[in-house]
């Protein structure tokens, strides 16, 4: 029944938290902020890439790669925004950049788009939210998740299955039948691209992608896992957007890297609001959403307190998993 579908933004309009002119003002689109953001983004990427070049052959190359990796894995934040069409006013630019980001971090864009749609429809609902990160059972599960090993295991297996033309039951639920082929072919194209590049590396003994791309991404992923956990983990698995999502106050550089996605609750409230307007939306919603003033670290203190029994677990009534 349509009348029962009440998106958070409609709810916010109905209860007067946000007026329609305010919402419409916040939703206005422009390409300018994204181009400016991207100009700095590319400069930072070149700078950290240059650091790797300068330190190759020394032990300093490892911290340099880690730093570069932190920037690289944040292409997830940009891709995420692109899949909401809230980076560029020009719609196709969002598709183009989203696909490019997906190639950088091995996250096929079309598949992610459909998965993410269901994440927004069923945020934090067990069995329905395909992006739900289970709260780890204990500290071991917590560090296992942060290691990114389960994440990569899952991503490689997903890609492999898609290349073979297979979709899991869960995927068949969130991807419409008409789109199976697209998802399978994007995985095949992505894999073909990686395989070709690997062959080129081997044939020409050219290892730049390893030092400037793949190793840094692997090293940076735990940082992205750490950040992704702060969005919903430790919050109750309920439908209420005022309860199930955290907004984190973070430093300016981190806010820059995540394209304002630290305003996560606001984003879930009104996912059509462009990234650069989220701080303004926050001003309207800050009294009704969950705000973690201590930022990412504070969110992890909260999660760890729940894991170590110093605080009630948000999933006390549900079965905790081992964090995979």
């Amino acid at each position: 029944m349509p009348a029962e579908v009440l998106t958070p933004v409609t709810q916010a309009l109905n209860d007067g938290t946000l007026t329609r002119p305010e919402l419409k003002g916040l939703m206005k689109r422009s390409n300018g902020p994204a181009f400016r953001h991207l100009a700095i983004w590319i400069t930072v990427l070149l700078a950290t890439g240059f650091l790797i070049k300068m330190t190759l052959g020394t032990l300093w190359v490892w911290p340099a790669m880690f730093l570069h990796g932190i920037i690289l894995v944040h292409h997830f934040s940009l891709q995420h925004e692109c899949c909401h069409y809230t980076v560029f006013k020009t719609r196709w630019l969002n598709d183009f950049v989203g696909n490019l980001c997906g190639l950088i971090i091995m996250l096929p864009n079309r598949h992610f788009r459909y998965e993410h749609c269901d994440h927004h429809t069923y945020t934090q609902l067990h069995g329905d939210d395909p992006e739900l990160i289970e709260p780890p059972k204990d500290l071991a599960g917590y560090f296992w998740y942060l290691s990114s090993i389960p994440y990569w295991k899952n991503k490689f297996s997903e890609l492999f299955h898609h290349v073979l033309g297979k979709l899991s039951e869960e995927e068949q639920r969130f991807i419409p039948k008409e789109e199976y082929k697209t998802v399978i072919w994007e995985a095949r194209l992505m894999s073909a691209f990686y395989m070709t590049l690997i062959v080129v590396c081997v044939v020409f003994s050219w290892w730049a992608p390893v030092w400037y791309w793949w190793l840094p991404v692997l090293m940076g992923e735990p940082v992205m896992r750490f950040i992704r956990m702060t969005e919903h983990v430790g919050k109750p698995c309920v439908r209420d957007m005022k309860e199930n999502t955290r907004t984190n106050y973070v430093t300016r550089p981190m806010q820059f890297l995540c394209w304002n996605m630290n305003y996560h609750a606001e984003h879930h409230y009104a996912s059509s609001v462009p990234f650069y307007a989220l701080p303004s939306l926050h001003e309207k919603l800050k009294n009704i959403v969950q705000v973690e003033e201590r930022g990412y670290l504070g969110a992890h203190i909260d999660i760890l307190s729940q894991l170590t029994g110093r605080k009630n677990r948000s999933d006390a009534l549900e079965n905790p998993s081992n964090g995979t």
Partner: peptide, 8 residues
């Protein structure tokens, strides 16, 4: 553009 999943 739809406010929930940005369908057009």
């Amino acid at each position: 553009e739809c406010p929930l999943h940005q369908g057009l």
